[in-house]
Computed example of a mutant assay.
Amino acid sequence: MGIGASYTLGNLIMAGDFSDTTFHGFGRSSSMKVFEPGVRYQMTPSLSFVSAYQYTMFEGHHWHEVALATHYLLSKRTELYTSVDWMRASEGVDAVIGYSFTPSTTRNQTAVRAAIRHVW
């Protein structure tokens, strides 16, 4: 189950969502709850800034994640972007941002990205 909403106020877009996912298997079930508020500020038609926070709870553990990003459109299909993500997990859990990186050996992890994205 999930619900989300956004509100635009001039160049500022405020958004948030909540999801509650239940996993069933091996005679057990677990629930993961995720809260995600964020804002996007459209400085110019080509330049935007994004700030987001995510709080996740799962099987007695929790994670805090903060993300900051900048997007610059070079054209309708090509953009430059940079982002910094920081995560802190509860005691006894190794942090892993987005499950696309190798898990940290500690409860903290930081990811920095700079890229050009082109959509065909």
Rank of each mutant, 00 (worst) to 15 (best):
F26D: 15
S51F: 11
V93A: 06
S46R: 15
Q54E: 15
P45D: 08
M1L: 07
A95P: 10
T78W: 12
Y72L: 06
F35A: 14
I97C: 04
D85E: 06
H71G: 07
Y99D: 11
H24P: 02
A114N: 03
G25S: 06
A15F: 11
M87E: 13
T21L: 07
T56K: 09
T82W: 02
R77F: 02
F23S: 14
V119G: 01
Y81K: 07
L68R: 00
Y72N: 03
A67R: 13
G38Q: 13
T56S: 15
R107P: 02
T78G: 03
N108E: 06
S31V: 09
D20N: 15
F101P: 01
G60Y: 09
R107Y: 01
R113Q: 12
Y53I: 11
T21Y: 00
S19L: 12
T78R: 04
R113S: 12
R117A: 04
A5F: 11
T110S: 10
V112G: 03
T102S: 15
S29C: 03
A89P: 03
L73E: 13
T8R: 13
F23I: 10
S83T: 07
L74A: 09
A67K: 11
T56P: 02
T70S: 13
A69C: 03
M57C: 07
H118C: 01
F23N: 07
H64W: 07
W86D: 11
G27M: 05
W86T: 04
D85Q: 13
M43H: 15
E91M: 05
Y81S: 04
Q109A: 05
E36V: 13
S51W: 10
M1T: 09
W86A: 04
T105F: 00
F101Q: 08
E79T: 06
F18I: 13
G2R: 05
S31R: 11
M87T: 02
